[in-house]
């Protein structure tokens, strides 16, 4: 569908709903993570604010809004303010190409349940993740703090090391579906089977690289608190810190949605297709993220680099070559 074929008002309403859902989902992912990690460590987690602690995110937001807006003396003012904005922009913009369903009719208006069906959707997400990393890198550098700078240097190294493997793991899916559009990738899976069956290794590599790309434990070296205080966001507080936090969790949601869309059929599922299937898949993947964090200790820096370049990249390349040969043979017959 052409991006310009829907009325402006429809696009606007879609955007407002999606962003509202996304921010709410962020707040409750955070709460859920704190509760689960609490359980995994033999404690309760937040359970006092509201019923069973479910008003905790609201209280946190109010607290963060009323904190002092602080810029350290040695900081580069412009970049320091700009960095969290870059992160949030890239994270939230990425949701535009994730399909939530097919065309539905609301008040006589045909609405496609996707922000924009780009013919380069997969690449668009990779481009935005690349831009989002600049928030971390520039924020760390602009803070004028050694720990922040080390955190951002690590971010840069980690991004370059794992993005290659991630990109290669996706190419298998693109080759099967013959398209870079996420809508068409989901359609291809609705006609056949989920691509995880064709690309199990690809899925595994994608998920591992995804954990590294979102800076989550055990790959959270850019913010390793035992060595770098808090890494790139050491000097950030109040709302600006909240924005980095928002970006990290929205990235987690987006990358789960992307994994679900590419390998697990997206909104397609048994019985009836719909956005609830996507939600279920995202929740399962989010649980995996949190479970990993509760279970695994942080990697050492050299282990991180060795794993990325010597294990993940060769495996991804192997997967790509085998997929290409098999798909080539299948197309010949």
């Amino acid at each position: 569908m052409n991006p310009g074929s829907e009325p402006f008002l429809v696009i606007l309403i879609k955007a407002v709903i999606v962003v509202f859902v996304l921010v709410t989902a962020f707040a409750y992912t955070l709460l859920w993570e704190r509760k689960l990690i609490g359980r995994a460590q033999g404690r309760y987690g937040p359970n006092r604010t509201g019923v069973l602690g479910y008003m905790q995110p609201l209280a946190d937001v109010v607290k963060l809004i009323f904190k002092e807006d602080f810029v350290p003396r040695g900081a580069n003012r412009v970049l320091f303010q700009l960095a969290p904005l870059i992160s949030v922009f890239a994270a939230v913009a990425a949701v535009a190409v994730i399909p939530f369903g097919t065309v539905v009719t609301v008040f006589g208006e045909e609405v496609q349940l996707v922000g924009a069906d780009l013919n380069v959707g997969v690449l668009f997400l990779f481009a935005l993740s690349g831009i989002g990393f600049y928030g971390l890198i520039l924020g760390g550098w602009a803070s004028g703090n050694k720990y922040s700078l080390l955190g951002s240097a690590r971010t840069a190294a980690q991004l370059v090391s794992y993005e290659v493997a991630m990109g290669l793991s996706v190419i298998g899916v693109v080759m099967i579906s013959q398209s870079l559009s996420l809508v068409e990738i989901v359609d291809a899976q609705r006609e056949t089977v989920w691509f995880i069956l064709y690309q199990p290794l690809g899925f595994l590599i994608f998920v591992i690289a995804a954990v590294a790309e979102t800076n989550r434990a055990p790959f959270d070296l850019p913010e390793a608190e035992s060595e770098l205080v808090a890494g790139y966001h050491t000097e950030y507080g109040g709302l600006k810190f909240a924005m980095f936090f928002l970006a990290e969790y929205v990235n987690m949601l987006i990358i789960s949605a992307l994994a679900a869309t590419l390998f697990l059929g997206g909104f397609a599922g048994p019985f009836a297709d719909g956005v609830w299937w996507l939600a279920v898949k995202i929740i399962v993947l989010l649980f995996l993220f949190i479970w990993l964090r509760a279970t695994l200790p942080r990697l050492r820096y050299d282990q991180l680099m060795q794993f990325g370049w010597k294990v993940l990249l060769p495996l991804a390349t192997l997967n790509l070559v085998i997929s290409a040969i098999v798909i080539g043979l299948a197309f010949q017959n």
Partner: peptide
């Protein structure tokens, strides 16, 4: 360019 090469420069 923006996502990989310049990141290397900055690194």
């Amino acid at each position: 360019y923006a996502g990989a090469i310049v990141v290397l420069f900055l690194f």
